Amino acid sequence: MSTSVTYLFDPLCGWCYGASPLVQKLGQHSGINLTLAPTGLFADGGRRMDAAFAEFAWSNDQRIAQLTGQRFTEAYRQNVLGRHGSSFDSAAMTLALTAVSLTEPQRERDVLKALQEARYVEGLDTGSVQVVGGLLRSLCLDAAADRLAAADADLMERHAARLGQARRLMRTLGAQGVPALVVHRASGDRLLGGQTLYGDVDSLIGQIVAG
């Protein structure tokens, strides 16, 4: 019997990008049923990129790179962090993931990885609905791209419910931020903090199945 695990994250979170390799392996494990739960932590916050925030982000990104081996390219530094006045907003990516979850749910984990790499490796503006929609189409996810562009009532309702559920989980379990995992068992839910997502997958599986 597989163990149900929920992954709490925001696609704009650098530490979540750092956790991506382990999340991908976890999702491929036959004994784990992994559900993605975007929290909307950086969605619709109104924050704008400026020189001070860009410097802070780049310094943080270097720590993540050293710990996880994930790439933060010069294209990202110049075209994303260097684009002062642009919005720091995960709303488009988060809504796109919900659209994928409604159209081709089996591909959502791969889309998350593609969105993160589009920002941190390719240096694309993933705060733009048009850019994110184009990325979905490049992945042959036209139905999801159409729904993202239309932002239809059903999509928005399901999206709000999804974020609400993730945020309730965070509050109930006292999660201080993302990334984090929630292990679901008959005896109750258990929170595993982000530090568990930067080691090896066998150690993580051990922590999930323990207790």
Score class of each variant (00 low, 15 high):
residue 33 N to H: 15
residue 71 R to A: 11
residue 179 P to A: 05
residue 52 A to V: 12
residue 46 G to I: 06
residue 53 F to Q: 09
residue 145 A to K: 11
residue 182 V to N: 02
residue 3 T to I: 01
residue 95 L to Q: 09
residue 35 T to A: 11
residue 190 R to Q: 13
residue 54 A to W: 02
residue 78 Q to G: 08
residue 53 F to P: 03
residue 38 P to Y: 00
residue 60 N to Y: 07
residue 60 N to H: 15
residue 206 G to A: 12
residue 21 P to Q: 10
residue 134 G to Q: 14
residue 174 G to Q: 03
residue 25 K to C: 13
residue 86 S to K: 00
residue 177 G to F: 02
residue 92 A to S: 12
residue 80 V to Y: 03
residue 191 L to V: 01
residue 164 G to S: 09
residue 166 A to V: 07
residue 210 A to T: 15
residue 18 G to Q: 12
residue 118 A to N: 05
residue 57 A to H: 04
residue 108 E to G: 11
residue 36 L to S: 10
residue 62 Q to I: 03
residue 209 V to N: 11
residue 109 R to V: 05
residue 153 A to G: 10
residue 179 P to R: 03
residue 203 S to D: 14
residue 149 A to F: 06
residue 111 V to K: 01
residue 20 S to M: 13
residue 199 G to K: 08
residue 203 S to G: 14
residue 197 L to T: 06
residue 91 A to G: 11
residue 161 A to R: 14
residue 132 V to P: 04
residue 169 L to C: 09
residue 33 N to F: 10
residue 20 S to L: 08
residue 107 R to F: 02
residue 107 R to T: 06
residue 202 D to I: 11
residue 58 W to T: 07
residue 89 D to F: 06
residue 58 W to M: 13
residue 33 N to G: 14
residue 115 L to A: 07
residue 5 V to C: 05
residue 104 E to I: 09
residue 29 H to Y: 13
residue 208 I to D: 12
residue 21 P to Y: 01
residue 151 A to G: 12
residue 4 S to G: 01
residue 206 G to W: 12
residue 76 Y to D: 00
residue 204 L to K: 02
residue 146 D to L: 05
residue 74 E to G: 00
residue 204 L to P: 06
residue 39 T to N: 01
residue 207 Q to L: 10
residue 170 M to Y: 05
residue 41 L to M: 01
residue 118 A to S: 14
residue 205 I to Y: 03
residue 59 S to K: 14
residue 168 R to H: 11
residue 105 P to R: 06
residue 170 M to I: 07
residue 59 S to R: 15
residue 47 R to V: 10
residue 110 D to T: 06
residue 30 S to N: 13
residue 42 F to Q: 06
residue 1 M to H: 05
residue 22 L to W: 00
residue 80 V to N: 08
residue 54 A to Y: 01
residue 60 N to L: 12
residue 38 P to Q: 05
residue 3 T to C: 02
residue 129 V to S: 12
residue 58 W to A: 15
residue 137 R to A: 09
residue 187 S to W: 04
residue 49 M to K: 07
residue 143 A to K: 13
residue 32 I to W: 02
residue 71 R to W: 07
residue 31 G to L: 04
residue 170 M to C: 00
residue 109 R to P: 02
residue 113 K to E: 08
residue 39 T to P: 00
residue 208 I to H: 08
residue 193 G to C: 05
residue 129 V to C: 10
residue 200 D to I: 08
residue 38 P to G: 06
